[in-house]
Design a protein around this nucleic acid. Structure first.
Length: 793
RNA sequence: GCCGAGGUGGCGGAACAGGCAGACGCGCAGGACUUAAAAUCCUGUAGUAGCAAUACUGUGCGGGUUCGAUCCCCGCCCUCGGCACCA
């Protein structure tokens, strides 16, 4: 028996695959059904690939190989998401220009990825920081601009002091910066936004038809946050305050109003004697971060403005307060407060001794707020109506009397895409001498990122220092014209890369319309769950917008989505700063890529991840050695029927397990087969079926055995073995025999045994007799192939 | 606080759709080979009692439905992920 030499064999096949261009895909070939197998592209950091990368890419590749053998035309591209802070921070530290380090890193990373033995078609790769790519990032901006989905607005924005830039809402997690973990503060700045809110409903509706984890859909639903209700207008002298409410039925119970401290009407309505108190409160709130504000959640605070508004339904005067429990960023920044039927309003009203009025029957509003639906009371024409009915009737009244209307409100905010950083795609905008913004005509794209700047950010974009950029701007547009100096959020770059893979290798078209029609949507998209409310929502929005602009043809970009699990070390996420990053190198060198990849897949279900531990890797190494020995040595067929049944049973199990991405049990099935094959022996034809089963999981090993079995063509150009259902079960079965639900014995029988015969032979068992003796059998149970049961009294 | 997922041997994890809990692997114990070790192979391995046949207990905790529950129902506890004053 010859020994398996992984490093030699893997090198041999990787070279062969490359020389024969086995993984080069002709996108225009439609002789087979297409399958777009996509994995989220990585950031090309200077560090080596770690276990987490392998855990992500190797199984994703195994899936692609399986689909290829199933007869699909599989496209498996790979690229690099190379704009962004790590390269820029590295440049600040070392002085090396990001373009230089990125070029170096992408090259080494591609090499490391190839060591896994993945079937990427590198010819169609993209790198987002190259002018050939960001030209299209800028083109996308122009499309958004020309279609009124891009606008500039001044307002309070999220600011990360550590990253020295603004952040989108999605990039603030738990009040902290998603990247650096620094507390996010609010700053008033003028910034560029994309109108993702125009797509709120479509983003919500589209989820329904997607084969995505329910959890991810739910997270997006929650993020978009649809709520149905009404807008109601309250008059304050000559001014109007508009509020949004989901409970228009409680309008009769609105005993006060609250404006967010930042609300623009506050200064207009505040009365003389309350001015100082209001001003002091506003300053106090402005000094708090989002995090501090939410920490003080329990203890509500606020100040009376001295002004009163008129409740449109009954003409009563209601006092207007300001309080930071009302957020400027949601609804209209103002609420009608119904303390009898809302927890927050109740707590506030109790603290400041404001009247509480019951308008829905069912609780005791003096003691606690009643927030459930119920029957309207003290509400004039609504009295006696159930909440749902009362809502409808109130909305009709508001609309008839011009005091408001039914309205759907969303939690989703527009996407802030400006960044005050160097290493990103420049926003293709210039300002005329009056300061008015103009889009840069498409012919000037790519609008190059200047190089004559200091990288270190000082709160304004580094691009502002570039002489070259200003000269360029004046030369093209005229004296006194100034360039926009902010760059775009890197999530813009990654919102369309899956389309650039389909550009047919051209830098002159955004995407080939024919190829887009054929290859989109992505059939399988694999990536981390952390992108649920960032990349995955942006990409859907951009794709939908592009459809409206006429550049793409489907409704959604990613048909099926799977999140790989997270691999931790000692329970913590691997990171350089924690120093717990595990490198695959020593394992790959010792055992080979196939063993390492299979070990990762054998750890547990792909979607679970787990804590890294190298203890079990020897088990896979042993298995590979035994498998190789078994397949490449002469074996005598001892039990033809048993061997055939074992092989067909294994084909079925492996096929079904891989379909569910449960590689762990697929490997277990192959181990069982290997363990049993010593007894039964295997024919050459049977071996050829088994090798194909392991091919997606251990591609080099499979190719090597395939060749040794006398095959000339790559195993990945052969088809997946089929099983014969009749042969997937053993010819004999073991029935468990239970008395009153307790296991009392076993019966060996032919698989086709009749119910009567099974019960008869079960009754003969000595141990069963013991429990039946002197008892009356009240029920006999037979579950074919599994159980014979007796119920006795 | 709200939403979601989960809790199974010493460890990673199996178990179609209510039907033999613990597949497969690691580890561990014993044995074979070896001067010895490593590697490899064989046997055993949830707990308790027993030489054994076997019996009892056992899938976070407490109840329930059922001939039979890791699986279904009710009430808790814990862990993880997300959202967090969303009107």
């Amino acid at each position: 028996m010859q020994k398996y030499n992984p490093s030699e064999v893997e090198k041999k096949w990787q070279e062969k695959w490359q020389n024969e261009e086995l993984y080069k895909v002709d996108l225009s070939d439609s002789s087979k059904p297409k399958y777009y197998n996509l994995v989220m592209f990585p950031y090309p950091s200077g560090d080596k690939l770690h276990v987490g990368h392998w855990y992500n890419y190797a199984p994703a590749d195994s899936w692609g190989r399986y689909m290829r053998m199933k007869g699909f035309h599989v496209f498996e591209p790979m690229g690099f998401d190379s704009f962004g802070l790590p390269a820029e921070n590295y440049a600040i530290k070392t002085g090396v220009h990001p373009a230089e380090s990125i070029a170096h890193n992408t090259e080494t990373m591609a090499k490391q990825l190839s060591r896994i033995g993945v079937m990427y078609d590198w010819e169609k790769s993209v790198t987002t920081s190259t002018p050939e790519y960001y030209k299209w990032t800028q083109w996308l901006f122009l499309q958004m601009y020309n279609n009124s989905l891009s606008y500039k607005k001044k307002g309070l924005v999220n600011w990360c002091e550590d990253c020295q830039t603004v952040l989108a809402n999605e990039q603030v997690q738990d009040g902290k910066c998603e990247r650096s973990g620094t507390d996010v503060i609010q700053k008033p700045l003028e910034q560029w936004y994309w109108k993702i809110t125009d797509y709120s409903q479509r983003l919500l509706d589209g989820l329904e038809g997607l084969d995505w984890p329910e959890k991810t859909k739910l997270m997006q639903q929650h993020w978009i946050g649809r709520s149905e209700g009404a807008e109601v207008e309250f008059e304050v002298g000559d001014e109007k305050i508009v509020v949004f409410t989901t409970r228009p039925d409680t309008l009769f119970g609105a005993t006060y109003m609250v404006l967010a401290p930042e609300h623009p009407l506050v200064d207009a309505i505040v009365t003389g004697n309350q001015k100082d108190a209001v001003e002091a409160y506003k300053n106090e709130v402005a000094g708090k971060s989002e995090l501090q504000r939410s920490e003080l959640e329990k203890d509500k605070s606020g100040v009376f403005t001295g002004a009163y508004a008129k409740n449109p339904i009954n003409g009563e005067d209601v006092p207007i307060w300001i309080a930071d429990y009302v957020l400027m960023s949601y609804g209209t920044g103002a609420i009608m407060a119904v303390p009898g039927h809302d927890e927050r309003d109740f707590a506030f009203a109790k603290k400041y001794e404001i009247a509480i009025k019951e308008v829905v029957k069912g609780g005791n509003v003096e003691e606690e707020p009643f927030t459930e639906p119920g029957e309207a009371v003290n509400s004039d024409f609504l009295n006696g109506l159930k909440t749902a009915e009362a809502k409808k009737k109130m909305i009709s009244w508001l609309e008839e009397n011009g005091k408001g209307k039914g309205l759907v409100n969303y939690r989703l905010r527009d996407w802030l895409i400006s960044r005050q950083r160097y290493w990103g795609a420049p926003i293709p905008i210039v300002y005329d001498p009056e300061g008015k913004a103009h889009p840069i005509p498409e012919e000037h794209l790519p609008w190059l990122l200047p190089t004559d700047v200091e990288f270190k950010p000082k709160g304004t974009s580094p691009l502002a220092q570039s002489k070259e950029l200003i000269e360029r701007t004046e030369k093209i547009f005229g004296e006194g014209w100034r360039p926009e100096v902010d760059t775009m959020d890197t999530f813009v770059c990654s919102s369309f890369y899956y389309l650039r893979y389909l550009a047919g290798g051209s830098d002159d078209t955004f995407v080939d319309p024919e190829l887009e029609k054929e290859w989109m949507p992505v059939d399988m998209y694999i990536g981390g769950p952390e992108h649920a409310c960032m990349h995955l929502i942006y990409a859907r929005f951009v794709y939908m917008a592009l459809k409206d602009f006429g550049f793409v043809s489907h409704d959604e970009p990613f048909q099926r989505l799977v999140h790989q699990g997270l691999v931790t070390k000692d329970g913590a996420k691997m990171s350089k700063s924690k120093g717990n990053v595990v490198s695959p190198d020593e394992f790959v060198e010792k055992y080979g890529s196939d063993v390492f990849r299979m070990y990762l897949m054998f750890m547990g279900p792909f979607t679970d991840g787990g804590d890294w531990n190298d203890q079990g890797i020897t088990g896979i190494a042993r298995f590979v050695e035994r498998f190789y020995g078994l397949m490449t040595s002469e074996t005598e067929v001892k039990d033809e029927d048993a061997a055939m049944r074992a092989v067909h049973g294994t084909i079925k199990r492996v096929t079904q397990d891989i379909e569910k991405l449960q590689f762990n049990t697929a490997i277990a099935a192959l181990m069982e087969l290997t363990n049993g094959a010593g007894k039964t022996g295997l024919s050459l034809d049977q071996k050829k079926m088994i090798v194909r089963l392991i091919a997606p999981l251990a591609p080099h090993l499979a190719e090597e055995i395939w060749e040794q079995l006398g095959q000339k063509e790559s195993i990945f150009n052969t088809s997946w073995p089929e099983y014969n259902e009749a042969l997937t079960v053993s010819s004999t079965i073991t029935l468990a025999v239970q008395v009153n639900g307790k296991l009392r014995g076993q019966v060996e029988a032919e698989a086709n045994i009749t119910e009567d015969a099974a019960i008869e032979s079960a009754m003969q068992l000595e141990n069963v007799q013991k429990y039946l003796e002197g008892k009356e059998i009240v029920k006999k149970i037979y579950v074919p192939g599994k159980i014979v049961g007796f119920v006795v009294k």
